[in-house]
Design a protein around this nucleic acid. Structure first.
Lengths: 207, 207
DNA sequence: CCTACCGATCGGTAGG
DNA sequence: CCTACCGATCGGTAGG
């Protein structure tokens, strides 16, 4: 593709996005300068602006690309009908793998959403909600009794906490790699979930 | 106490710290302006600078105060000798309670550490490591067989993930409050931890 | 002399 | 694709 565009235009855009994601993840969106992005890409600042309209376009593109990949992954797992516990393992391992593949983009997605303008933020949070819903559906398939409680979503979010937090403390040279973590997380969560107590007489909301 | 200082000086400093923590948590350290901090405190900017040397002093003070409270809490629980599982419940519920009490400071501690200068960052990460160590000690007291594996610290960090991530999704008007979450997290983790599989023939590092 | 503050403006640097 | 800049806004401080 690229009639009218130099060969390598799209590749260059992807490279820029990856470098920008790394810088945004390390220093934060608002503390990263476009000079730093340009330098990391081996480009002059005007050259950088040839590929992306402005700094904000980089942020939106990183978040959009990543959250869409995650959503596709979740829909794919749910489409393959399987036992709930097997689906949960597939979801957890798939998500950990996706994050390992794009850990900088993932940290940007989780920590820099606050810099998105309302419209973009809403669109991306919508996709995040779809991802969480997919997980929550499997959680309540494993523990149908939780449907009568307000615990389904909180338990699902605890699972996301384990996974999302991994990328703040794991080091690539650590003893365990991402491929070890997926099963460990699934194990811990599934074993815990099976036995979580349902509080009796959980307060019904008055309205 | 205030020989030479006006009455209310220390109270004013605490108020400023709380307001700054809220702004830093919402907008990020580097995107928050000293004008915004001053305005949130009902002070002029020069008045604000009367209480804190500069913007950076606010960040260090927020992080230091909060991490020290957490460390004190953990040491206190460990000092009261009790059964490991009871200690774990006390740690989790204590930590969740501390976070609920200072959720803005907590988000600053977890998300804005990157803006600390190397010396300050090291001192604070040291305290964080002490906190994690306290938890890890109880984890291996519950599952002594994990001492022979590299899983003790990762499992502990999964627990921190559940707790730290709570503050990104819980809403004060949600169906469940922080007082409900502590027991739920402890339940999920303890039930899961008891049954986490130890992979056989875990790779020994060659050096 | 002190503190607690205000209106105005400084030197530097950001995105573009 | 570069040097050279701009409009604006930042953190921090002067005099009073």
């Amino acid at each position: 593709m690229g009639r009218g565009r130099a060969a390598g235009y799209d590749e260059q855009r992807e490279t820029i996005l990856a470098r920008a994601a790394e810088l945004f993840a390390q220093r934060g969106y608002s503390a990263t300068t476009m000079n730093q992005v340009a330098e990391a890409c081996g480009l002059s600042k005007p050259a950088l602006y040839h590929y992306y309209k402005d700094k904000y376009a980089l942020l939106v593109s990183i978040a959009d690309t990543h959250v869409s990949r995650l959503e596709t992954l979740v829909q794919g797992v749910l489409a393959r009908k399987a036992a709930p516990r097997a689906q949960m393992r597939a979801l957890v391992e798939g998500l950990v793998g996706e994050y390992a593949f794009a850990q900088h983009a993932h940290r940007v997605l989780t920590e820099e959403v606050k810099f998105l303008e309302p419209g973009d933020q809403q669109r991306i949070l919508e996709k995040e909600r779809a991802i969480v819903s997919g997980f929550a559906k499997v959680v309540t398939a494993i523990r149908p009794d939780l449907l009568a409680t307000p615990m389904g979503k909180p338990l699902t979010m605890l699972l996301f906490g384990m996974i999302n937090w991994m990328f703040t403390w794991m080091r690539p040279d650590g003893e365990l790699g991402y491929e070890d973590m997926g099963p460990m997380v699934a194990d811990l969560f599934l074993n815990g979930l099976s036995r979580v107590a349902v509080p009796k007489a959980k307060k019904e909301m008055p309205h």
